[in-house]
Simulated scan of single mutants.
Amino acid sequence: MAESEKRTPLGEFLRSRRAALKPEDAGVVSYGARRVPGLRREELAQLAGVSATYYTRLEQGHSVNASPAVIDALARALNLDADERAHLHELASPTPGKRRRPSRPATARPGTRQLIEAMGGDVPAVVLGRRTEVLAWNDLGHRLLAGHYAADAPDRPADRPNLTRMLFLDAHHRDLYARWQEEATRAVASLRVVAGRFQDDRELAELIGELSMRSPEFASLWSKHPVATCASGTKYFRHPEVGELALQFEALHLPDDSGHRILMYSAEPGSASEAALRLLRAKTTEPSEPARTR
């Protein structure tokens, strides 16, 4: 009797990349009609230099702890980029039986808070936990990303802002992005990297489950398995107070295993976006109505 197929992150990722690879792009001569897009299992196995039986067991979740050499061979056969290759290695080296209980809420280190406050006059900055929860922000970061939240919201774990949840479920935050689809794809690709790196994170799994249930858009993107570290780039904002901005972002990962990172934004010198950011900075010093508590 054939073994039943187990759904594993490794198997799902391999299937998604195998389906996306056209035979002609892999140098495979195709004969006859194909029932499914992409490479067949036996074709990928041949390209990687492994047996079709072994590859099938790997994809179906019946073989674990494949050697790094086999994973590298599969990555080459699938034409994976550097981020996808690293993600494949993470998925192929799980830590079984150690899904941890919910931990105490993460906090930003005092030195990290001091650092983003020192940037506060010119650079919007936020400190993110591994699940994209906001652990701290300076005044300009708060005003740029979530002025409709109370300034002290990151200090209250029970209703702490989460940038990914807000992107898909908070209409105010969603409207902030002029290129929402681009931002959504980037957010899901980054979350995929984190999910592969921290496979035992229960709260992360719960966040992914919540978004998959409540947002069809998230579920659709998640099923496509985009993978990218998204350490830098440009974000396009449509801010309710100062209009359109194109801001460069840099994500600096802290040198520990926490998964925390500092997300910082800047504008091109002399640009309209710099002028808009300057105006927003001026508004942070003006008296205003208290933001509603979230």
Rank of each mutant, 00 (worst) to 15 (best):
E3Q: 14
K6I: 13
Y236N: 03
E250G: 03
E286N: 07
H142V: 06
G61E: 07
P102C: 09
L245C: 04
R202A: 11
A108F: 03
G147F: 05
A195I: 01
P124R: 04
A231M: 11
G32R: 15
N65F: 13
L135R: 03
H172F: 13
P269G: 07
L221M: 14
P68A: 15
T132S: 15
L167I: 13
T95F: 06
R156W: 12
L280N: 00
E5S: 15
A45K: 04
A184T: 04
L254M: 08
D139F: 03
L128T: 02
A171E: 15
L204P: 01
A118Q: 13
L221R: 03
R101M: 09
D139M: 06
A20L: 15
E268H: 12
R130E: 04
L128M: 12
G61T: 09
V127Y: 01
S190Y: 04
G11Y: 02
A2E: 15
L254W: 03
P9H: 08
A75R: 01
S215T: 10
Q114C: 08
P105Y: 10
M1W: 07
A75W: 00
A251R: 06
V242N: 00
L145D: 02
S220W: 09
V64H: 14
C230W: 01
R202H: 15
W180T: 08
R131Q: 09
A276Q: 02
P240C: 10
Y149G: 00
F237V: 04
L247V: 03
A125L: 07
Q46V: 08
E217S: 12
L91W: 00
Q46E: 13
P124K: 04
L21I: 13
A267S: 06
P105N: 10
E84N: 05
K235L: 05
G111R: 10
G196K: 03
L44V: 15
G32S: 15
G111W: 06
V193F: 02
R278E: 14
M264I: 08
L277Q: 01
L207T: 07
E182K: 06
H62S: 11
A187Q: 08
P226G: 05
L135I: 09
R100L: 09
S273W: 02
F198V: 05
S93I: 01
G111S: 12
L91R: 01
R292V: 11
V194L: 05
P154C: 10
D200H: 11
E24G: 08
R165W: 11
E203M: 06
V64M: 11
K6V: 12
R113G: 07
A151L: 13
E84P: 01
A205Y: 02
P110V: 06
S67P: 07
T164K: 00
G97Y: 07
L128N: 02
L58T: 05
I116N: 02
A276R: 01
T107L: 10
R99M: 10
E59M: 11
Q114H: 12
R156L: 12
Q181H: 15
L14C: 09
P110I: 11
